[in-house]
Amino acid sequence: MATQRVLQWRAFARTWWLYDAANQCPFVSAYRVVPYLQGKHKPIFHPLSDVGDHVVVINTKDIAMQADYWRTFTFFHHTGYPGGFSKASAWRVHEIDPTRVMQLSVYSRIKGNLLRKGLMRRLHLFPDDKIPDEILENVSDQIRQVQPVAKRLDQYSEEEVTEFPKFFDWPEDFVKDGYKRHMTRKKPKRRYTV
């Protein structure tokens, strides 16, 4: 029956998903994105059938990392030749290519089998929200973000800031922090008390 053939095409049609990585942790986002690449969110999933979807990730330049991971998290690479080892901290990798951290976190999340490179080819990464039209026209749904995005102070209007409720007034002699970070932190003197 001809309709059976069409039903098959429809069941195995690839969906294109959009994921906004702005202010999202790349490692947690990888956990969210990879099942869509593998097709594990579908009831027809089977490891031998190729049912993975496409995921378009935008705003990868605005990803957020917890604590001081930008400084401490290190990516390693080895070319295979003697002396081919190199490493770079996350901020450096991000500076060179703003899509690279997201790409590596998704890549390391997928199991290292023959499917990995095929799945990675269905991951489309863009540093900002400028997507080519031929990709954007395929997108039919969005993946929910992994963490809520807080509103920054400069995103509030001046009215909202001035009208925000105050519980108390600062004393006149109180010195507010000027948001300057001391580069060298002095070791506090140890005081001996009797």
């Binding site: 959009l18 994921y19 906004d20 935008i58 929200d129 954007l136 997108v139 969005q142 993946i143 929910r144 973000q145 992994v146 963490q147 809520p148 995005v149």
Partner: peptide
């Protein structure tokens, strides 16, 4: 029309 930010915010 995508992206539609109101649809994909994380649930809190």
């Amino acid at each position: 029309s995508f992206p539609a930010p109101e649809l994909y915010g994380a649930k809190t």
